[in-house]
């Protein structure tokens, strides 16, 4: 479904990603884990069209999307739920959700999608007419995910969904991620929270200093010595 081939990317003179290749199959939950600054977010931003790789190719359902503008990537059905929620603070939750359905493929069915999404997130439906900025961190993360779902994405990408949330909320977030995956969406998650993420994923890639250091099934990674040493301090 999604394939990255030898991607090099960075900001200005700084190269962050070096020769990153990975793929995501339809219906899979794939995760990219790694430390802060390893290049996880940069990978997602390259896929989302927010930065253009200096070399390499990105294919989505057979189409080369390497140089596509961000809004065109969204139109193809790739939606990213950004790090730190990034809601529209001075808008109601409802307006936030409706903006989620802005892409051409989702606009015409936005009311049906809204019903479906609110079913999935009952807590969000209680907050529809509140300003987004008045929600707690956990609620905001739920709205951000719900907003991502509103786009009826073919591929849903999560950037650090657990960031800044209490562990108990993190657990709920990953429950939701599982629900999303169960509904048939393909999911790509980037996380620092290595264990929790690998527990909810099918496959994983370990990114270190902008390079793919390991890739395997989630189970295999969980018992990998290097992963245990580097990310758990054991």
């Amino acid at each position: 479904m999604l394939t990255l081939e030898n991607i090099h990317a960075g900001y200005g003179a700084t190269t962050i990603l070096q020769d990153v290749s990975l793929d995501v199959q339809p219906g899979e939950v794939v995760t990219i884990v790694g430390a802060n600054g390893a290049g996880k977010t940069t990978t997602l931003r390259a896929i989302a069209g927010q930065i253009t790789p200096t070399s390499g190719h990105i294919y989505f359902e057979g189409r080369d999307i390497t140089k596509l503008a961000a809004h065109d990537v969204v139109d193809l059905g790739i939606t990213m739920i950004p790090e730190g929620r990034q809601l529209f603070p001075d808008m109601t939750v409802r307006d936030n959700l409706l903006l989620g359905a802005f892409r051409s493929g989702a606009r015409s069915v936005q009311n049906e999608t809204l019903d479906y999404v609110l079913d999935l997130f009952p807590r969000v439906s209680e907050r529809l007419d509140q300003m987004a900025s008045s929600l707690s961190g956990g609620e905001q993360q739920m709205v951000a995910i719900a907003r991502g779902m509103m786009a009826k994405p073919r591929l849903l990408m999560f950037d650090e969904p657990s960031l800044g949330l209490a562990p108990i909320i993190v657990e709920q977030v990953f429950e939701v991620v599982k629900k999303v995956a169960a509904s048939g969406a393909t999911v790509l998650i980037v996380e620092q929270n290595v264990f929790t993420t690998l527990q909810s994923a099918d496959r994983g890639y370990v990114l270190e200093n902008g390079e793919i250091a390991l890739s395997d099934t989630a189970e295999a990674l969980l018992s990998n010595d290097h992963v245990r040493r580097a990310y758990l301090g054991i």
Partner: peptide, 10 residues
């Protein structure tokens, strides 16, 4: 609060 059960298990 912080390390998670995963850490404890591991």
């Amino acid at each position: 609060a912080y390390l998670g059960k995963g850490f404890a298990d591991a």
